[in-house]
Design a protein around this nucleic acid. Structure first.
Length: 271
DNA sequence: CAAACTCCCTGTTAGC
DNA sequence: TGCTAACAGGGAGTTT
């Protein structure tokens, strides 16, 4: 499931390949993937626009587009659960679950493939319409432990579901929330406003470290035109390890349900 | 306003 | 072996 590190990896891989490319045509195989505008407008507005930049904000991929004259748009892509992007020759046979296809001017196609149909595409003149309400970027240079402290203050909610809230902090999903809390030695059920200075500091460091490490690992093994398929799973400490011994203390990793989300933690290390 | 719950989807896995 | 039910989960929308 693509979270911040996966989307960052995708952005880095696609950037050199997409910069300067023009969209010739758009084919929508499943209209539900297009959030806005209406599918007919979506396909009408894109042809002729070139990719000016490829960026990430939270879990969104942003392709800033432009043309010599006339209105410019930003294409935003949210992969949600099962969304994938591939950039391949137009001669490649269309894959199963292909939802939207962008025909480019270099003989290739950018393909949005999504088995579970949760992913969404947005074409807007102002990206703030979509990403404007997101919380801070956890890896930003100007995001400090004090910022995190202020965010947690006065929040009675458990820290785990709060980390998943995109308006709280952008880009953290279920996997890295569990991993960050393990690194920080914090019980995921503990309320945010009960975190002492020490714990917030550890969460700040743990969150940034696990995200950075994941980005590094995902940069390693990419290929076959499909992006965001890293080997990060092998490095996880608690996620998906219920019933197995904690790497730090050998206690059995537990899995509970917290705000409808599977939550993995070590009951001894995380307090 | 914050917090909790519902729903959208389908491939995979657990259970019988 | 073959079937069904539960499960996975991001986030918009709705309700409390």
């Amino acid at each position: 499931m693509p979270e911040l590190p996966e989307v960052e990896t995708i952005a880095r891989c696609l950037r050199p390949l997409l910069l300067g490319r023009a969209v010739l045509d758009v084919r929508i195989a499943w209209p539900g993937a297009v959030d806005r505008p209406a599918p007919a407008d979506f396909t009408a507005r894109l042809p002729g626009q070139r990719v000016d930049s490829v960026e990430r904000r939270g879990k969104y991929l942003l392709l800033a587009l432009g043309r010599k004259s006339g209105p410019a748009d930003t294409l935003l892509i949210h992969l949600r659960m099962s969304g994938r992007l591939s950039l391949v020759s137009a001669a490649e046979p269309p894959p199963k679950h292909l939802r939207v296809c962008f025909v480019l001017d270099d003989g290739r196609e950018l393909r949005f493939v999504d088995t579970r149909k949760f992913g969404r595409l947005y074409l807007v003149s102002d990206p703030a319409e979509i990403v404007g309400r997101l919380g801070p970027e956890p890896l930003a240079d100007d995001f400090s432990a004090d910022d995190l402290r202020r965010l947690c203050a006065g929040r009675a909610r458990a820290i785990k579901p709060l980390l998943l809230e995109q308006t709280f902090i952008a880009g953290v999903g279920n996997i890295y929330a569990d991993e960050a809390l393990f690194r920080a030695g914090i019980d995921p059920r503990r309320s945010a406003n009960s975190l002492d200075r020490e714990r917030v500091g550890r969460l700040y460091v743990g969150l940034r470290a696990v995200l950075r490490q994941a980005i590094e690992h995902q940069g390693a093994d990419l290929g076959d035109g499909v992006y965001g398929q890293g080997s990060q799973r092998e490095h996880l400490q608690v996620y998906g390890r219920e019933g197995k011994p904690c790497f730090a203390c050998n206690t059995t990793i537990e899995k509970i349900r917290l705000s409808q989300r599977g939550t993995h933690f070590c009951p001894r290390c995380q307090t």
